[in-house]
């Protein structure tokens, strides 16, 4: 009976530790503290499990390369991913840029579970990790042995939970920028950290479900403008010069191009070839606009 209580105590203790279970691994003395708008998040690192990853992340944090990065993907039950350092608010200095190296994979037997830190990489190259990493928000066994785990969230998970409350777009991209204002390296587990606080989302930033209705309205207004412009062109074609008629057609192209981008842009970025074609389309539209009200060559 006594043994049962001890077991219960151990189980409860384990549950209370929650994501901190991986503490069994040796952690580096230095922690990285992410100071965010939602409070602080303390990251503990595994120097024995992923020495090269830990070395690079600490080096970059000391160079302040992570200041201004952001959580660009917050997927409830899966992970919250930080952007690369190139995506931070200010450009990297030459020194910071030079400090970024591709890190070879350091896979381990640690599984992807709640609270673990896992390094992002390119899909087709296991040795391509550089600066982007994620905080696991659930278990993902399909990632085990494919992505390097290099630490865990030691404190401040309440701050991560605040991120989850922010409305997201279709690709789990938060509607407001969840910026890491500063990533600080400190020795030892910090005693005092900024407590979690809610992210202020402006009332006009509605979730994607509301945007779909607004998107329909925007499409309707855009199409109406195209139709009105076309009717105008049709009825006054005899009165207007070629120069004016061409310009009216170009206005239709511009409105239609904008509407296409409005609808398609959120989904093209996941397909490299589509995103490249979209960029080419935008450039072609600009090229066409140089013909706006261009006098006839005659």
């Amino acid at each position: 009976m006594k043994g049962k209580y001890i077991l219960q105590f151990l189980v409860l203790t384990f549950i209370n530790l929650g994501f901190a279970a991986p503490v069994a691994k040796k952690t580096a003395e230095e922690r990285i503290v992410l100071h965010t708008d939602a409070g602080d998040i303390v990251l503990a690192l595994y120097p024995d499990v992923a020495p090269k990853h830990v070395e690079q992340l600490l080096r970059l944090a000391k160079l302040r390369a992570f200041d201004g990065i952001h959580f660009y993907r917050v997927h409830t039950g899966f992970l919250a991913q930080l952007s690369t350092v190139e995506d931070r608010l200010t450009p990297l200095t030459e020194e910071q840029r030079r400090a970024i190296k591709k890190i070879p994979a350091e896979f381990s037997t640690i599984s992807h579970q709640y609270g673990q830190l896992t390094m992002a990489r390119q899909d087709n190259d296991v040795d391509s990790a550089e600066t982007s990493f994620s905080i696991m928000l659930g278990s993902a066994p399909h990632l085990d042995g494919k992505y390097t785990i290099f630490g865990f969230v030691e404190d401040g998970f309440e701050s991560v939970n605040e991120f989850l409350k922010v409305p997201q777009g279709v690709n789990h991209d938060p509607v407001v920028r969840l910026t890491v204002n500063q990533a600080e390296v400190i020795k030892g587990r910090p005693l005092l950290i900024a407590k979690a606080r809610p992210i202020v989302v402006p009332p006009n930033l509605n979730p994607a479900t509301d945007n779909s209705k607004k998107l329909s309205v925007a499409l309707a207004v855009g199409l109406l403008l195209i139709i009105l412009n076309s009717i105008l062109t049709f009825f006054f074609s005899a009165k207007f010069s070629r120069q004016k008629l061409k310009s009216l057609v170009l206005i239709n192209v511009l409105i239609a191009g904008f509407l296409i981008l409005l609808v398609a842009l959120p989904s093209v970025k996941s397909t490299p070839i589509l995103s490249a074609l979209t960029m080419l389309g935008i450039l072609a539209m600009f090229r066409l606009m140089t013909q706006f009200e261009m006098p006839d060559q005659k």
Partner: peptide, 24 residues
């Protein structure tokens, strides 16, 4: 400038990123 997942921020406006691949 458009290889990142986000398009950056301009006067507090979070811009959409095209997410261009590095090969471009």
């Amino acid at each position: 400038a458009d290889t990142g997942s986000s398009g950056g921020v301009y006067f507090g406006i979070a811009l959409p990123g095209l997410g261009l691949h590095q090969w471009t």
